[in-house]
Amino acid sequence: DQIVVKLRQRLKYVEGNTRETLETVLGPLTALPNRLRDAPPAETLALFKQHPLLAGILDNASPNRPRDGTYISEHPDELVSVEDDFGDRASPADYIESFETFVKANMNVAPALIAATQKPRELTRRELKELAVLLDANGFSEANLRQAYGRARNADIAAHIIGFVRQAALGDPLVPYAARVENGVQRILASRPWTAAQRQWLIRIGRALKAQPVGDPALLGDPLFAQHGGFEVIDQAFDHGLGDILKDLNGAIWDHHVA
């Protein structure tokens, strides 16, 4: 009963990408308290065991507290310096080191990290969102990682979160994600003789992957493809083998030999 009450209090303050990701994993959040209230207590126990980060996310969900409006100074503001804030990691190099330590310690434990490092061919959007939530909850957002690697290694890296994880875990080179997609699509196009229609679809799928990472059947639900019938219709153009082809494309994108 206490958990149900606290869920009702906290869930309304879970917003943005975090809420979207949780609903992908747990279903509609507004229905969760009633679902647990009406279910055996064992279901609540199983929920928090299956999703150990959930408690921390809920603990951090709270209304924004208004500032007291107290003036500190009436002097005009002046920009003195711009510095990166990596929390308790003092420098970009420290931040990268902490990230690498976290990934290596959890790459065989956390399902999202297992998928990113060991099963990229099988990756789904759901696992990608779970990966982002896991890393963000531990202080490793994609934006901060890009900034840290750029500062520490003097490079502007647009590698994508999976690329940073695989670099930390496996030593894969950091390659801009758009270049990975281009290389992956070209590798698939060269892998066998395709019909003109099949080649056109593969090129379109490659373009979509640059904005919507991970090739799974859900990708074909986007408006670009839905207007042509979505996965079921496009799959017919590939003799019902499109599911495996999407997996091959994931593998081609994240194969470090291709990069």
Rank of each mutant, 00 (worst) to 15 (best):
A105V: 08
E43R: 06
D68R: 07
N34E: 12
T124C: 04
A110R: 13
H75A: 13
D68K: 07
L123G: 02
F86C: 04
D156N: 13
D84H: 10
D38T: 08
N138Q: 15
S62H: 08
Y71K: 12
F48W: 11
P120T: 12
V80P: 02
K129L: 08
R126A: 03
A155L: 14
S141L: 09
T117G: 04
H75K: 05
N108Q: 07
D77Q: 09
L113C: 03
T30F: 11
Q118L: 10
H75S: 02
Q50C: 01
S62A: 10
A112V: 04
L54A: 10
L79H: 13
P120C: 14
E83R: 15
A90S: 03
D156A: 09
D84Q: 10
R121D: 07
I96Q: 00
N138P: 11
N138R: 15
T117K: 04
P63H: 08
R89P: 00
S141W: 15
A112F: 01
D94M: 12
N108P: 00
I114Q: 10
L47H: 01
V103R: 05
R35V: 04
P76S: 09
N64V: 15
P33E: 13
I157A: 09
R151F: 08
V103W: 09
A61G: 01
D68P: 00
T44K: 02
S98A: 15
L36M: 06
H51F: 15
K119L: 04
E130Y: 08
T70V: 14
A158L: 13
P66E: 07
D68F: 10
K49Q: 00
F99Y: 14
A137H: 09
P120L: 06
A42Q: 06
S81G: 01
N144S: 15
M107E: 03
N144Q: 12
H75G: 00
A148I: 15
E130L: 15
E97L: 03
V103G: 00
N154S: 10
N106C: 02
E43M: 04
A55E: 06
L113F: 09
F86M: 08
A90W: 05
R65S: 01
E122C: 05
A42M: 09
E97W: 07
N138E: 05
F99K: 06
V109N: 06
K104N: 08
E130H: 13
L131W: 01
A137T: 07
V109K: 15
S62R: 11
L145S: 07
D38L: 14
R151W: 04
P33S: 01
G87Q: 03
R151N: 13
L45F: 08
L113V: 10
R146V: 02
R153W: 11
I157K: 14
P76L: 08
R35L: 06
F99W: 12
R37I: 03
V80M: 11
Y71W: 06
A143Q: 11
E127I: 12
L134E: 02
E74H: 15
E127W: 09
E78N: 02
A132R: 14
D88L: 14
S62Q: 10
D156G: 11
E100P: 00
L128D: 01
N138A: 02
L145Q: 10
E122G: 05
E74D: 07
L113D: 00
A105C: 05
P92Y: 14
D94Q: 10
Q118A: 12
A110K: 09
F48N: 09
A115R: 10
K129N: 03
E97H: 15
E78A: 07
T124R: 08
R65E: 00
R151M: 04
